[in-house]
């Protein structure tokens, strides 16, 4: 009994140590199976050879009304599949969601509940209960059931500078 208890105790200690390291240096540890890489681009309409086309540029100059594309690239760097991969992205307060997309769910209550925008309502001090609008969205959430080893992809949303 004592021996077994000691083994458990030892395991527990090691586990605690790992947890402590994880908390202290979450960005540096090598055990993460998935790497995330965030980027932002600004959407501009430019005229090239007399034709208008949308181009995405590094945002050197952003003003209210500009359209931004925030992207998060993911990649399963491990040799094991990853399950229930859920990416949550709080919207920066200075932007509003430009358009909804079937690929993600949204929250209009600070991330407490998620769903399709069309199914969500909001309680407005002036208008009472009303349907939620893209401008009400506070969080976006993508859910991927499984990512195979080596699999990668990009999650993105479009937003407008308020």
């Amino acid at each position: 009994m004592n021996k077994v208890a000691n083994i458990f105790k030892g395991l527990f200690s090691v586990g605690s140590l790992c947890a402590a390291i994880l908390i202290a240096a979450p960005a540096a540890h090598a055990q993460e199976a998935v790497a995330l890489d965030g980027k932002v681009k600004v959407e501009r309409v430019e005229t090239v050879d007399g034709k208008e086309q949308t181009v995405f540029k590094e945002p050197t100059s952003v003003v209210p009304g500009d359209k931004l594309v925030f992207s998060t690239a993911y990649r399963n760097t491990s040799t094991q599949p990853v399950d229930n991969f859920v990416v949550t992205n709080p919207l920066p307060g200075a932007v509003m969601l430009a358009e909804t997309d079937d690929s993600f769910e949204v929250s209009v209550d600070g991330g407490a509940t998620f769903g399709a925008l069309a199914d969500l309502t909001i309680t407005d001090a002036e208008a009472g209960q009303r349907a939620a609008k893209p401008a009400d969205v506070t969080h976006i959430r993508w859910t991927l059931a499984r990512i195979a080893p080596g699999e990668e992809g990009v999650l993105e949303y479009h937003a407008i500078v308020r």
């Binding site: 998935v34 993911y74 990853v82 399950d83 859920v86 990416v87 709080p90």
Partner: peptide, 9 residues
């Protein structure tokens, strides 16, 4: 903008 992910491995 920062995204965070949870998953099971």
């Amino acid at each position: 903008n920062t995204a965070s992910a949870t998953y099971e491995s």
